[in-house]
Design a protein around this nucleic acid. Structure first.
Lengths: 112, 112
DNA sequence: TGACAAGCATAGCAATGCAAGGCATAACAC
DNA sequence: GTGTTATGCCTTGCATTGCTATGCTTGTCA
């Protein structure tokens, strides 16, 4: 199981990124992320839904209720312009840290 | 400035990683990380020292006071075996998330 | 008919991040 | 000899927050 700090840091960028695949609903996001991570990232609904609400409040995403084929109602989320912008920013920040870490993970960090 | 979640998630792995370069002290760790990140990662002492104390309590690192060339006293930290193990674990977790994100960042994520 | 999966939601409080502040010494300018 | 900046360590305190636990509905299948 992943450290909670890492989960916290990756939730928003992951939601934004998954939504670039097309609109999707909460329950399916959890499964999509589990699938993409090979089971390593296990979100709970209790942590995801508040994040989705916050992201909507921030205009990163928007939602709409659809009736699924099954007759069941789902709340679909879609990326907004603000969200695409935020994703770019998140990518850059992530890569900054990633590059810093990988510099140190090279065989002989002293020589860099 | 980086999002605070990302800072939180990267602090311990960064400290562990920098210490693989050799023992070092708190104040210098802040500068080393600033340097390695090209100024993107700006730690404050108020957040770092408690983390160092926690890491020492967890036996990830150990400390010793040395007199610097300047005559000033510094508390040097060194990696312990537990810390090296923790670093391996942190690396794996980081890479899990990184790989998940980069899958989604490819030009046509639908096709993966 | 009852158990499970799908689906969304939030109250509540334990845990904690870190800004702010404190202390001390070296170095340097004037 | 004094004012300032950089170096260097430390902790308190409380606002913020993460997320567990819980609750509800509906579809499906045995």
């Amino acid at each position: 199981m992943l450290a909670k700090e890492l989960v916290a840091a990756s939730t928003v960028p992951l939601v934004l990124s998954v939504l670039t695949e097309g609109e999707n609903y909460g329950y399916a996001l959890i499964q999509r992320v589990r699938e993409l991570s090979g089971g390593k990232i296990e979100w709970t609904e209790g942590m995801l839904y508040p994040v989705l609400h916050w992201m909507e409040k921030e205009d990163l995403i928007e939602s709409e209720w659809h009736e699924a084929e099954t007759g069941r109602k789902r709340k679909y989320y879609r990326l907004r312009k603000e969200g695409r912008k935020a994703l770019q920013e998140e990518k850059q920040q992530w890569m900054s840290v990633h590059e810093t870490l990988t510099k140190l993970w090279q065989p002989q960090p002293r020589l860099t």
